[in-house]
């Protein structure tokens, strides 16, 4: 069970990183970080982006469950 959870955690971690990186970046980096210009986010998200959102959400949920499960199981 522990091994399974660990493998699950590894797989979901990698997939999660990939999924997040596949998203189109929002916000213009540092310039808009601390009190920069105000950009209006008028552009809606595309269908691909929406599906990616869903996938990321699912992966994130599994990832969280794996972490909590490992924490409960190992309990050091």
């Amino acid at each position: 069970m522990k091994l399974f959870l660990q493998i699950l955690l590894i797989v979901t971690s990698v997939l999660l990183i990939v999924a997040v990186l596949l998203h189109r970046g929002r916000g213009g980096g540092l310039s808009s970080l601390f009190g920069g210009g105000m950009q209006s986010s008028l552009a809606g998200s595309s269908v691909a982006e929406k599906n990616l959102d869903r996938i990321t959400l699912g992966l994130g949920a599994v990832w969280l469950i794996a972490i909590v499960g490992l924490g409960l199981l190992v309990k050091i």
Partner: peptide
């Protein structure tokens, strides 16, 4: 494993911010 989880955590944080 811990390092990998923290890295994925950073990715999640970035996504949350976006």
């Amino acid at each position: 494993l811990t390092v990998l989880t923290m890295t994925a955590g950073t990715a999640v944080m970035m996504w949350l911010g976006e």
